[in-house]
Nucleic acid binder design. Structure first.
Lengths: 339, 339
DNA sequence: ATGAAAGCGCTAACAC
DNA sequence: GTGTTAGCGCTTTCAT
């Protein structure tokens, strides 16, 4: 059984490929094709179960209606959500999405970018690594429309959709301070990553504004993992002047810290208060539901898609945009007021 | 700036498109192309930053090296993991993956399938809805290689990669029984879904074997949601002869049930024991870590990919295969032995 | 050791 | 109203 092409149909209805193509693309009206012909073609196409070969169209149109989305860890609920919203938004606009998971691996990121370029995607959405510069220039060299979300790379001019990490963290730390906490630890991720740097800035500023000292041994940088959160929290607890509150810079760290505190036999929030960046399912399932700084994930996804599509369609000719969205402090149970 | 094609290079090195193509596809040796020519071509390609247009190749080769993966809820960690492993396995085999999220919506599933067909994917991996029959026949009509995972549809002959739901559940319930539980509730999902039916079978068989009665009011079918788990557990607790142990048929339900129990002021496992199907992050983050039946997610992913690729490459000519993988009972803290 | 030519399936400019 | 033709970028058969 041969596959049905325009030619197959054309032969059978005794019209040309062009006519068939025009009918099937709903252009028969503006080309003055008779309704009879149109109906005949449509009927035959249905009968033969014709399905357009999108690849052939793409080749011809030099447009694939495909967008590549590259994230660092699709397993992290933050990215899962992001990807879900992006996929959905693009689907409704007629685009197909190729989701690429790099697992924080530059090699794999490189491989994925090359695949996307070979496939001539119309645009790429990227949650970059701080060290992705070389990989990103592959994209920029080709002038493939590109939008970043989640993370900023100072060296790269581009469109960014971000959240106000500094303000979000400040709000969190201010809240802690307002509850009487003076010894507040910061458990951070990669110290060179933009998000982490800004969150740390927010932390420092809030302390300064409240005339509280920034104590180096209260600051634990490493990476965005459960393990780091776990170990850092244990170390902090062992301190003579142990902090009374922890700020954790992402959803993995906060979980590790939570576990670390529990495993030390301490209670949240009676013994230690804790607040995390990112909201996520587990945060509300814990017996003490976590107070967190929530990122507007759906809004990030939608903004990114809009921005990218406006670039693709040349609708947007202004120079690079950096859009900063607001976070929201969600008060739950993991913070206690100090007497 | 024009994009570099084979022709661009051919013109500049004064060889034909064919020669350039052969060189760039590493076939220059078997075609007796001189090394000098090859080097020249390669150098020029690099200089011009040539990137092959995969779409054009696909059109010619009638093969896209693209696989569609359709899941019901990418947000559910079970599927996220599955997708991650599938994507990774296919990536290493040179395939690109288009991930489609249906959100349990048949319309959207239909839309996604049509997109995949129009794009002439080489194969499709599908976690089907029980009611997907019409959608699936779209694929079967086209003879596009197809592999199912996660869920079986009795009416459809095809390749399936599944786990032994019945045995897994039996093992869980047997464990409960061995711990002295006699009043065991079953909080299930969609009663018509194959997984749920088999899990329920396992539940009933274990009870029967232990000569325990199957009490209808201990069985709560509805859907695989947190909400259902939550409400069902509350109802069960209110019963006069409330069960001492709950079996929850998936990761969402078990979380709901957990929360329901806590919210009733009861303690796990002192007051109620609980066991879930599926392992997942939150299960080990809860203060009482959940005892669960764990599905071998990576193995499911790998088997499915292998099977699908063997079909695509006509390596595997045997008739349809149903592969049933083993689950594993992971003992943690949510079950108490009854005196 | 290399090239010419045909064609994958589609679309659009131009022709009548 | 409809057809002809050219071409998107690539590969491959056949020829020399």
């Amino acid at each position: 059984m041969q596959i049905t092409t325009l030619q197959t149909i054309a032969n059978l209805v005794h019209y040309s490929r062009s006519t068939v193509s025009r009918v099937l693309n709903d252009q028969w009206n503006e080309h003055g094709i008779s309704e009879a012909t149109a109906e005949l073609v449509i009927a035959k196409a249905k009968e033969l179960n014709y399905i357009k070969n999108e690849g052939a169209s793409s080749l011809r149109a030099k447009k694939t209606f495909t967008i590549g989305v590259i994230v660092r860890d699709i397993t992290n609920p933050f990215y899962t959500q992001l990807v879900k919203f992006v996929e959905n938004a693009l689907y409704t606009k007629g685009y197909t999405v190729i989701i690429c998971n790099t697992g924080y691996d530059l090699e794999k990121e490189n491989g994925h970018i090359n695949v996307l370029l070979r496939r001539r995607v119309d645009g790429i959405i990227l949650s970059p690594n701080q060290k992705s510069i070389d990989n990103i220039s592959l994209i920029k060299d080709r002038n493939v429309p590109l939008a970043f979300f989640d993370c900023k790379i100072d060296e790269i001019e581009a469109d960014y959709i971000l959240v106000d990490n500094e303000a979000g963290t400040s709000e969190a730390v201010n809240h802690l301070i307002s509850k009487g906490h003076k010894k507040i630890a910061y458990i951070g991720g990669d110290p060179f990553e933009s998000n982490n740097r800004l969150r740390y800035e927010g932390y420092k500023k809030s302390l300064s504004k409240a005339a509280l000292p920034i104590r180096e041994h209260y600051v634990k940088h490493s990476n965005y993992t459960f393990k780091h959160g776990y170990e850092a929290s244990k170390e902090l607890i062992r301190l003579n002047d142990a902090p009374t509150a922890f700020f954790a810079a992402n959803n993995r760290i906060v979980l590790g810290a939570y576990k670390g505190i529990i495993d030390c036999g301490l209670h949240i929030p009676e013994d230690v208060s804790i607040i995390g960046f990112d909201d996520f399912e587990t945060a509300i399932m814990l017996p003490i539901r976590l107070t967190v700084v929530c990122q507007p994930i759906e809004e990030i996804a939608l903004c990114t898609v809009d921005l990218l599509l406006s670039r693709i369609n040349n609708t947007n000719t202004q120079s690079f945009v950096t859009k900063i969205l607001k976070t929201e402090l969600i008060l739950r149970q993991s913070i206690k007021g100090l007497a």
